[in-house]
């Protein structure tokens, strides 16, 4: 299947250096990025399931081992630009605990660690491109060395599409969070509709979990005959 990758749209993708995020000015290249031809090397990719096995499908736990916080279920669907699902793709997810603390040696935030919460899962999408994660809602936390920037609750996602250039690493946000309006990372996406699509949708639930639906669209669509 021939896959076509189109240039990033500056309205729907962040552009590099972002005021209010000092590290971006130390790390994003100062020279313009080079445009290259797309050859089979970029338009092919790994069979990622072979490389990365599933690790934990549930971060919330049960009974005495249950993590603190609001139980949630994330229904994440991975599709390409044609809307075609990507069954078998790998979805990595990680987030902080309900108090805003990551299980990571580099997290210096003074918030409690939850002994029953680990915070990292790797899932393999099913037939309809769907991956489900049962977890707890992450908390907000302040970003060190900034003047009052708080990260809103968010979940990090890393997924693979059909080809090397389809790789997607992003963050998912929760609806109705006041901190969404001032988050430097979410608001680096200039187009309000594209930004809105980074916020999960709360759907009715009759279980003990709040259910959110979210769609991840990876780059790439099928090149059809007659298309330039």
């Amino acid at each position: 299947m021939a896959i076509l990758i189109e240039r990033r749209d500056p309205l729907t993708q962040a552009q590099g250096v972002e005021a209010g995020y000092a590290q971006s000015a130390r790390r994003w290249p100062g020279q313009p990025l080079a445009l290259r031809p797309h050859t089979p090397s970029e338009l092919s990719g790994p069979e990622i399931r072979r490389c990365l096995p599933q690790v934990r499908g549930d971060l919330a736990g049960y009974g005495a081992k249950r993590a603190l916080g609001q139980l949630i279920r994330l229904r994440v669907r991975v599709v390409d630009e044609d809307g075609a699902p990507l069954p078998g793709t790998v979805v990595e997810a990680w987030h902080c605990n309900a108090a805003g603390k990551y299980i990571h040696p580099n997290d210096t935030h003074d918030a409690p660690v939850d002994p029953n919460f680990y915070g990292a899962a790797r899932l393999v999408a099913g037939d309809s491109g769907l991956a489900e994660l049962r977890t707890i809602k992450p908390g907000a936390y302040p970003v060190p060395d900034t003047s009052g920037w708080w990260r809103p609750p968010h979940v990090h996602f890393s997924v693979w599409g059909r080809v090397w250039l389809s790789r997607l690493v992003t963050q998912m946000f929760f609806p109705g969070e006041p901190l969404n309006d001032s988050d430097v990372i979410l608001n680096a996406i200039r187009d309000p509709e594209a930004r809105g699509r980074c916020i999960a949708r709360l759907v009715p639930s009759r279980t003990s979990e709040l259910v959110y639906e979210y769609q991840l669209v990876v780059r790439g669509r099928r090149a059809s005959p007659g298309m330039p």
Binding site: A14, L168, V169, T170, Q171, A194
Partner: peptide, 16 residues
């Protein structure tokens, strides 16, 4: 029918 690719965002400092 064409969907817009999801906005990429930073990996952050706490990748497992």
């Amino acid at each position: 029918s064409h969907l817009v690719p999801t906005a990429e965002m930073t990996l952050g400092p706490f990748f497992p």
